[in-house]
Computed example of a mutant assay.
Amino acid sequence: MTPPVALVTGASSGIGEATALKLHALGYTVYAAARRLNRMQSLVAAGVHVVAMDVTDDDSMRAGIQEIIARSGRIDVLVNNAGYGAYGAVEDVSIDEARQQFDVNVFGAARLTQLALPHMRKQRAGSIVNITSMGGKIHTPLGAWYHGTKFALEAISDCLRLEVAPFGIDVVVIEPGGIKTEWARIAADHLRATSGQGAYACQARAMAESMVGEASRKRQSPPQLIADTIAKAVTARRPKTRYAVGFGAKPMIFMRRWLSDRAFDSLMRMATGISRKAA
């Protein structure tokens, strides 16, 4: 039997890199995709195929899928991991930046799924793994655009799961909590740059510190935990539809489900140090 074939996006670091290595160790033929090939030399050394891919560029995604089919003849697993968090007050974030975040976090994943599905349907088998976040179930201060993308990807995943089940294709959502990656630093830097001055400055400073402060860093889970969960999902005969893993994911999702909106708002203010009153 030929080994199963997996495509992992956002594979130059963090969760994507760990997932590519994990699936490779399990015997998968892995194609690791990211915009910059020079950041994936460690994956090349490990025997992982690397593909230059920009999930906001249709030609780039088409070429990547065509390369995989030409070289391996099939695609069994698609891990939509590429994404980032652009925090800032709704009033401050430009609509162009908001669109860019949706292009990467939502439309990139959706378009790559469209390109992979004909091959999976032909095989009558496959797994699509969408990396959302506990942020696809909860809300935090100054994160509206980021949370909007993750809520959207959760909904798309649910609808997609119904559509492709008759073809033997699984759709799995992974909802990470706090993970030791570059994500928090990038999001905090963007938050400070976007809302660090003006009406929302006090909130921005408090929220940024809660994201990258020592207390937060100590509690974050390693990317390998998410990689192991993805591997568990794609090798299961009947995977769960959702896996909430990593620091804070399960308890936060549980509290959001059972607390009222205002009670959860109060919890978020307390956890992040955001004042109820404007400065």
Rank of each mutant, 00 (worst) to 15 (best):
L43I: 02
V50N: 07
V30R: 07
M40F: 08
Y31K: 00
K22D: 12
T19M: 03
V51D: 02
A25E: 06
L23C: 01
A46N: 09
Q41W: 13
Q41F: 09
A20G: 13
L43S: 05
L26K: 01
V48C: 13
A25P: 04
K22W: 11
L23P: 02
Q41V: 11
L23W: 10
T29S: 09
Y28P: 04
L37S: 10
V51R: 04
L21V: 05
G47L: 09
S42V: 00
R36V: 02
V44R: 05
R35E: 00
V50T: 12
L37T: 10
V44E: 07
L37M: 07
L43H: 02
R35S: 03
H24Y: 03
A25S: 15
A20S: 14
L21D: 06
V30L: 04
A20W: 02
M40H: 02
A33R: 03
Y28G: 03
A46E: 10
N38Y: 14
Y31L: 13
Y28I: 01
V50R: 03
A33D: 12
A45R: 15
A18T: 15
A32W: 07
L26F: 10
V50S: 06
G27Y: 06
A46T: 01
A46D: 06
A33G: 10
G27S: 08
A34M: 07
H49T: 12
A33S: 07
V50A: 02
G47M: 08
V44I: 12
R39T: 01
V48A: 06
V30T: 08
R39S: 06
K22G: 09
A18I: 04
K22V: 12
R35L: 05
V50Q: 03
L23I: 01
R36A: 11
N38G: 10
Q41K: 15
Y31C: 09
K22F: 01
G27Q: 08
A45L: 12
L21R: 13
T19K: 10
T19L: 11
H24D: 14
A32C: 11
V44T: 10
R36K: 14
H49E: 13
A45Q: 05
R35K: 08
G47F: 07
A18L: 08
R35H: 08
G27R: 10
T29D: 14
H49V: 14
Y28S: 00
M40V: 14
A18H: 09
H24W: 09
V44F: 02
V44A: 11
V44C: 14
S42P: 04
A25N: 00
L37H: 13
A46V: 05
Y31F: 05
Q41L: 11
A20N: 11
V44N: 05
V30H: 11
